[in-house]
Design a protein around this nucleic acid. Structure first.
Length: 265
DNA sequence: AGTATTTGACCACA
DNA sequence: TGTGGTCAAATACT
């Protein structure tokens, strides 16, 4: 056990270093996708290994204020069409909202369809689905829940792949650029997401931004101070959790995740 | 007037 | 049986 723990620690440390290097490179040299990709690949590999080492309980740690029910993971079945999301790609992201940051979102059009109090959670969970669900059959949904441990942190879970034209447009951006960056440039097209919280949660897509402090021991979340452009220095954090085997693919081929024939659909 | 959000109820799964 | 996810009518907002 201790051996594994030590290895895990080393892996995570390495991960942190790479992440920081990646940040530095991307930061001062935006035209170096090659180097960035290399690092991303190594990063993904390292994270994957670390996660495997962490044990067979991906959600066991239950980071921070997450209700941690853990029941939404792929259960397969789904009879009457409900709980269909359980079948889909699950991507968990932790973001920090920033005061006065305004109604930022990930550049995609979401429509809130429900909110529910979650057992053991201090704050309700909000349910969103793609606005083009009916017109284009886009099955993507997301769940947003404030972490009770830190009211400024929001746990965002993306379920399912975006198949709508808008998502395709967003993801067709330059060089795997995170949709969030796109969103920042197109905020005016982002309708407000009504969540009954004082601050609007920023919900970056599943893509590593820039690390500051990474991986909280005992938690499945990876703390990543964001430089998504949301609020530099404003205290943005973004965590992410992926199904182990999906991590690399999602990380390196983000657009595929949102495409009709994504890696896990 | 049209659209988005809220909220209670229903359904399915563990 | 309890809980989470979704639906749909009512309400609020632009």
């Amino acid at each position: 056990m201790e051996d594994t723990a030590a290895t895990l620690a080393a892996e995570l440390d390495r991960l942190l270093s790479m992440a920081r290097e990646l940040e530095a490179r991307v930061d001062d040299d935006q035209g170096a996708p090659g180097a960035a990709r290399e690092l991303c690949a190594a990063l993904a590999e390292s994270v994957d290994r670390a996660m495997r080492l962490a044990g067979s309980s991906p959600r066991g740690g239950d980071g921070g204020g997450n209700a941690g029910t853990g029941r939404a993971s792929a259960s397969g079945q789904v009879k009457g069409g409900r709980k269909a999301a359980a079948n889909k790609v699950r991507t968990q992201v932790r973001v920090a909202s920033v005061m006065d940051a305004g109604p930022l979102n990930d550049g995609l059009s979401w429509r809130k369809y429900g909110q529910k109090d979650i057992l053991g959670a201090a704050y309700p969970r909000a349910y969103f689905r793609c606005r083009h669900r009916h017109t284009q059959g886009c099955q993507a949904t997301k769940q947003v829940q404030r972490a009770h441990a830190d009211p400024l942190l929001f746990d965002v879970v993306y379920l399912g792949a975006h198949t709508c034209a808008q998502a395709a447009a967003v993801l067709a951006g330059p060089e795997q650029q995170p949709p969030a960056a796109f969103a920042l440039e197109h905020q005016q097209s982002s309708p407000p997401e009504g969540i009954q919280w004082p601050v609007e949660p920023v919900t970056p897509p599943p893509f590593l931004s820039s690390p500051a402090g990474c991986y909280t021991p005992g938690s499945p979340w990876c703390e990543l101070a964001g430089s998504y452009g949301y609020a530099a220095g404003g205290g943005l954090g973004a965590d992410m959790e992926y199904a182990y085997d999906q991590f690399d693919e999602m990380f390196l081929n983000l657009p595929e995740v949102f495409q009709p024939d994504g890696p896990n659909l």
